[in-house]
Design a protein around this nucleic acid. Structure first.
Lengths: 204, 204
DNA sequence: CTGTTTCGAAACTTTTACGTATCGAAACGG
DNA sequence: CCGTTTCGATACGTAAAAGTTTCGAAACAG
């Protein structure tokens, strides 16, 4: 009320918050979630230490652990790649390729781990994650499969949820089944998976 | 050296340990592992409270958490059912039925969770679990698939690890993909999954 | 230069669980 | 009956982490 009007663009005086620190905190959070299993084992002090940051700097931005986790996971929303649309098989291979790489990447894996395992303890958080990171992909894959049904590339009586589970579950389980000591992804596994699922396991 | 000989059958004097308490401890441990996600969140005090038992009774039997977990998980080794062997499809349905039910059961799920997520922190424990609970099934399913290849029920160029991942991963992912609020297992899903995988997603 | 805000570091309080010890009661053998 | 051991309960000291506060230094606006 003294000199400046109220409706200005909120330019807070004082030292501005460091964007570098914020990014370091998010990165450290994602790293630590990827290394641990659950949110219960994620410690703010470990995040601060890994990020080279004081705890104050974290609590000044996020009031609790869950808020920080939500924001950190939100930065991971890697959308599905643009699909060429030339053939169903080609598009499926492109998608499965993404799933394969994400199943091997600790940072991407942690999203699934939380979404699958922490529903009972953090239902709100898990629902937000599912909605932000899982549902769009589910919808995109569903559309792709339904397009395949329409074009006749897929059988007319296809059960879309089952086919969905087959595509993702097979890749994830394949990676998980590998010996953790020497996780070598075989070349051509993606095509192998897609062709086995499309053509079936029995002789034609 | 006074009255009794040394080489007797170790009959310790005093009140015998309660088998009922031991079972209650194991049960509580399995329940809590199923509810929580990681061994780090599993607390001895919670186990004692759930089992209606003093902490002393636990520490008198197991010196640390990992030993208790190993013993608890060892009681879970539910082998695959006897396979009729009449047809590959029939046997696969029987196996997948087991997988489906176990994917819905928290107690069985916890074995997978630990085997998949805790390798870096408890490599010894995880290797024991994999060897005791996972490998036998993997071997049984592998034999079943190879028998199918031999009888011509499966294509000759089948990639067995991929087929394995497809069978288990599809079921697990199907259950996980269900809305956690109303997890209703559709009737006939097992046949649906097996037939989709065997026959393929494309029209024949 | 002055005032304000953020910075990283550290001290602090509270909570939680571990692992141990102690207690009276109960269950066994001799 | 008596000694021994287990029982469940409880209390204790230790340790880790949460979340808050304090501190001097640094970064900006005016």
């Amino acid at each position: 009320m003294t000199t400046t009007d109220e409706t200005q663009t909120a330019r807070p005086a004082g030292r501005p918050r460091s964007a570098r620190a914020e990014k370091a905190i998010i990165d450290a959070t994602l790293d630590l979630i990827g290394e641990s299993t659950s949110l219960g084992e994620l410690s703010i002090e470990a995040i601060a230490a890994r990020a080279g940051v004081g705890k104050t700097t974290i609590y000044r931005r996020w009031s609790n652990k869950e808020d920080l986790v939500v924001d950190a996971l939100a930065t991971l929303k890697a959308p599905l790649p643009r699909l060429a649309g030339r053939s169903l098989r080609e598009d499926l291979i492109a998608c499965v390729e993404v799933f394969l790489h994400e199943a091997c990447d600790a940072r991407s894996r942690c999203v699934m781990n939380i979404a699958m395992n922490e529903f009972e303890r953090h239902p709100r958080l898990v629902k937000r994650i599912r909605q932000a990171a899982i549902e769009p992909r589910r919808a995109a894959l569903t559309a792709l499969l339904q397009r395949g049904i329409a074009t006749g590339e897929l059988r007319a009586d296809l059960d879309v949820p089952v086919a969905l589970a087959a595509l993702i579950g097979t890749v994830v389980w394949y990676v998980r089944g590998l010996d953790p000591d020497h996780q070598v992804i075989q070349e051509g596994v993606v095509e192998q998976v897609v062709d086995h699922l499309l053509g079936g396991l029995t002789p034609r």
